[in-house]
């Protein structure tokens, strides 16, 4: 394999990691505030459908993006209404959102487009197209750095760059602002935040809104940047891999990013290796390679290397003392 081959694998890893990064950041913000978010998958799927549907109808990828964000935030608010306002079980609410999304997206797309649960294929100008960063062509001949810049850094769609920015942004928001400090405190010891006179409810709702926005962008990436339209179940477990990456990165932005890139790289590598026999084991079906992220997460959770400690108040609704 040449240098360019490696660059192309990393390039596709980055694209495959994008929805993982956005969803994992969403999960991180939500879980840092004490709300378990199994519903990432559903929000991703809902966002993907909303983006494709609105982009088809209006012809604008941007309106699609906003619709995806709106849809995903709406699902987040249902989650909040159930488990913040009504102190319901967060895991059940998350499962409900996932099943709801996988049913509702097909029902809505059949009703709107009657194409068996798909949306019509989007034209080039109804999607987010690759952005060529300045100087990519001019620098292409510079050895090593040129192709690196042209193939890997430049030429991605907008959501990929948003994902890249989202990681430092989430880090800054949670660890460098007053809001972030409060948000994390709500996930560790809500009673303390409450006695400081702040609203636990409103803080947790805001965390869920942020999570909704991020998942919506991820959804728009799937259907209007990476793909060209919505296909049923197109999230294909990515929300769950993001959840795994978030745990694997121990609820911290930079390690979570690393985990997402690793999982993206595994998928890209598996796609490329498909059909070529490996030494010792022979030809491995891609599905078997794709379970490695899950196995890695289970091993980590088992505490065999490192220890993943979740936020202390994770999963428990806050009840004010009377």
């Amino acid at each position: 394999m040449t240098y360019l081959d490696f660059l192309l694998i990393f390039d596709s890893s980055l694209r495959l990691a994008t929805p993982l990064i956005l969803c994992a950041m969403a999960g991180l913000v939500s879980e840092r505030a004490g709300i378990v978010d199994i519903g990432l998958e559903g929000k991703l799927l809902g966002g993907a459908f909303a983006a494709a549907a609105v982009a088809t109808i209006t012809g604008s990828a941007w309106l699609g993006l906003f619709a995806a964000i709106a849809c995903s935030v709406l699902l987040s608010m249902i989650h909040g209404f159930a488990c913040i306002t009504h102190k319901g079980e967060q895991i059940i609410s998350g499962i409900a959102i996932n099943i709801l999304a996988s049913g509702a997206t097909v029902v809505a797309s059949v009703a709107l487009f009657s194409r068996g649960g798909q949306t019509p294929t989007l034209d080039r100008d109804e999607r987010f197209s690759p952005i060529d960063l300045p100087g990519a062509e001019a620098l292409a001949d510079v050895p090593y750095a040129g192709p690196f810049y042209k193939e890997l850094i430049s030429g991605h769609t907008l959501p990929v760059y948003i994902a890249m920015i989202a990681v430092p942004l989430v880090w800054w928001l949670l660890w460098r602002t007053r809001f972030g400090l409060r948000l994390r405190a709500v996930g560790e010891m809500p009673a303390a935040v409450d006695s400081a006179g702040l609203s636990v409810t409103w803080l947790r709702y805001r965390a869920l809104i942020i999570a909704g926005i991020l998942c919506g962008i991820a959804g728009a990436f799937l259907s209007t940047a990476h793909g060209a339209g919505f296909v049923r179940e197109m999230s294909a477990g990515k929300g769950y891999i993001a959840l795994a990456a978030m745990i694997f990165g121990k609820w911290r932005p930079w390690p979570v990013l690393a985990a997402c890139l690793l999982f993206g790289f595994l998928e890209a590598g598996a796609n490329r290796m498909q059909g070529t026999p490996l030494p010792v084991v022979g030809e491995v079906p891609i599905e078997v390679v794709l379970i490695l992220p899950y196995i890695a997460t289970v091993v980590l959770l088992a505490g065999f290397f490192g220890k993943a400690t979740p936020p202390r108040a994770l999963g428990t609704p806050y009840r004010k003392e009377r």
Binding site: G88, I92, S102, G103, V107
Partner: peptide, 18 residues
């Protein structure tokens, strides 16, 4: 898939919002 939708709603209302 309408049934899937109903199922999601039932989990939401009888589970999370019980």
């Amino acid at each position: 898939e309408m049934v899937l939708l109903i199922q999601g709603l039932i989990i939401l209302f009888s589970g999370a919002l019980s």
